[in-house]
Computed example of a mutant assay.
Amino acid sequence: MQFIQTFQLLDFLDTLVSLAVAFVLGTLIGVERQYRLRAAGLRTNVLVAVGAAAFVDLAMRLDGSGGAVRVIAYVVSGIGFLGAGVIIKEGMNVRGLNTAATLWGSAAVGCCAGADMMAQATALTIFVLAGNTLLRPLVNAVNRSPIDERSLEATYYVRLVVDSSVLAGMRDQLTERLEAAQYPVADIEVAERTDRRVDITATLVSTTIDPKELDAVVSSLHREEGVYDATWNVSTTD
């Protein structure tokens, strides 16, 4: 049999060590994900790490380091498709990006183990775990800190709800008052309603603003005849 002729015990033990290391390190990463009830938990991270190690080890056996490099390139792109499956978009919110990045890290750990770079695989595991645990208090602190709108570069929107009879005049006034306050308008959209009311939304050129100045402009527009509502909001999401 071909297997009996080609089987090498030392090579087999080396492969076994690579897979075992990938299994253990993938388990360490997966336990943290499972504890936090993420979509890709313990089993997924272990399978990603072991699978990457198996492919790289196989390429090393068949074609040396050159073959391993080519397989690693495909592993990197392939994990991208797998990570996309755990990313969920809910309205303006996106969930799962960190889990997808962790899967990418697990694949890198597996690749290192498959290439017999055990120390590098262990170090990478420590960094992945540190990113998911030690940085969490810093993230929470940043999220709780107050936001100063004047320090942000974002996209601002000014929205008026007006009577359809004053649409043309209020659209011009909206543009003039914003530009007089040094907030140039990039675009204006008009959306009609069924109750003779019309929405006018002005998108400002991306810049920093003083909330008090924009509040003053909106308040002055709100007092105009035929204006039912006037508000502004900001978006920092691309």
Rank of each mutant, 00 (worst) to 15 (best):
S77Q: 09
V76H: 05
K212T: 07
T155D: 15
L134H: 02
I87V: 00
T194M: 13
G80A: 12
Y183H: 07
G110C: 08
R150W: 09
L138G: 01
T236V: 07
Y183P: 01
I72G: 08
W104I: 02
L103N: 01
W232F: 05
V46S: 12
V198F: 11
L152S: 09
A52I: 02
Q173P: 00
A115E: 06
G169K: 03
M118D: 10
A141L: 13
V161I: 08
A216W: 11
S145V: 01
T207W: 06
L221P: 10
V46F: 14
A40C: 06
Q2H: 08
R223Q: 12
A107E: 03
I87H: 00
G83R: 03
T133H: 08
V218M: 06
A123E: 14
L82N: 09
R61V: 10
N143K: 15
A52W: 09
F23R: 00
M60H: 03
I72R: 02
T203S: 14
L62Q: 15
N45R: 12
P137Y: 07
A202W: 06
L134C: 06
R70G: 10
R38C: 03
E192I: 03
I87M: 01
G105S: 09
L221Y: 13
A230L: 04
L129M: 10
M170C: 00
G169H: 07
L124V: 09
D63C: 02
A168N: 02
L167T: 02
V227G: 03
L28A: 15
V128G: 02
D148H: 06
S65A: 10
A49E: 12
V218T: 11
D116R: 13
Y156A: 13
M118G: 07
W232V: 00
T155M: 14
A119D: 12
E149Y: 14
V21Y: 00
V76S: 11
N98A: 07
L9N: 11
G91K: 03
A73R: 08
L58V: 11
I79T: 04
V161G: 00
C111I: 15
V205F: 11
L214K: 12
E179G: 04
I147L: 15
G105D: 04
G114N: 14
V86E: 06
V71E: 08
F127Q: 06
Q182C: 08
L37Y: 12
F7A: 09
R171C: 00
A84R: 02
G41P: 11
A115R: 04
Q182N: 07
A73G: 10
T208R: 12
D116C: 04
S145M: 14
I4F: 12
V139R: 15
G80H: 12
N132V: 15
A216N: 15
L135V: 10
